[in-house]
């Protein structure tokens, strides 16, 4: 505890760095996954291939990916962009299936009714299907969020600063409190982000708590 208090400024700095790696990747995974999921749902024969295919990306070992990506992207190994892209790929692996299922789960009757009263396909997607898929999308996003926060730590091995650096330093120099702090603060960060997502969900989807049909 004393160690943590002594090093608090550094820990907070690393927490921020951690968040700045994770948040863009989470957002990017979401924004890319939704259109992929939408397209996969439209072209039924391709759906399972796309959904399972992206899901398999999660099986790619993370460390090699961090090292291979810079070659493809033309960035340095320690470039944060490299890390963010890798995290986005892992996020996509989880999010495409959630998003495809979420969009699929929208009640057919509601879809039909909105067509019947004169929604165009695009308007229906953005103002009916997407909001109604919201709760399921949020559930998927929460998994991506936790997974991404935990994966960020791996990049510390490459020398990219994050809460993971507390593990790597801790192991190298045999400082147990540093390792403990790394675990604890990663968990706290994951929890905070999760709470934030839940709160955002409450705010943007007020009809859910009113009881659904």
């Amino acid at each position: 505890m004393a160690w943590i208090l002594d090093h608090l400024p550094r820990i907070l700095e690393l927490s921020l760095a951690h968040l700045l790696l994770a948040a863009p990747a989470i957002a990017a995974a979401f924004l890319v996954a939704v259109p992929i999921a939408w397209a996969a749902n439209r072209v039924r024969p391709l759906r399972e291939i796309v959904v399972s295919g992206t899901g398999l990306l999660y099986a790619v070992p993370s460390l090699p990916l961090f090292i291979v990506l810079p070659i493809i992207l033309g960035t340095g190994v320690r470039d944060t962009l490299n890390v963010i892209v890798a995290l986005t790929i892992f996020g996509l692996a989880l999010m495409v299936r959630s998003a495809a299922d979420a969009l699929d789960s929208v009640d057919g009757g509601v879809r039909l009714a909105s067509t019947a009263v004169g929604y165009s396909a695009a308007l229906r997607f953005f103002t009916v299907e997407l909001p109604l898929a919201g709760p399921a999308l949020l559930a998927g996003l929460r998994v991506v969020s936790v997974s991404t926060i935990s994966l960020v730590s791996v990049s510390a091995v490459l020398g990219v600063q994050s809460l993971g650096s507390l593990f790597t330093d801790g192991f190298e120099r045999g400082i147990v409190p540093s390792i403990v702090a790394g675990i604890a603060f990663t968990a706290v960060l994951a929890l905070l982000l999760d709470l934030l997502l839940v709160a955002a969900g409450r705010l943007t989807m007020p009809w859910v708590k009113g009881g659904r049909r």
């Binding site: 009757g109 509601v110 039909l112 909105s114 009916v128 909001p131 989807m205």
Partner: peptide, 9 residues
Amino acid sequence: MQNSGLLPH
């Protein structure tokens, strides 16, 4: 329509 077809949100 039957079951009203209202937008739940």
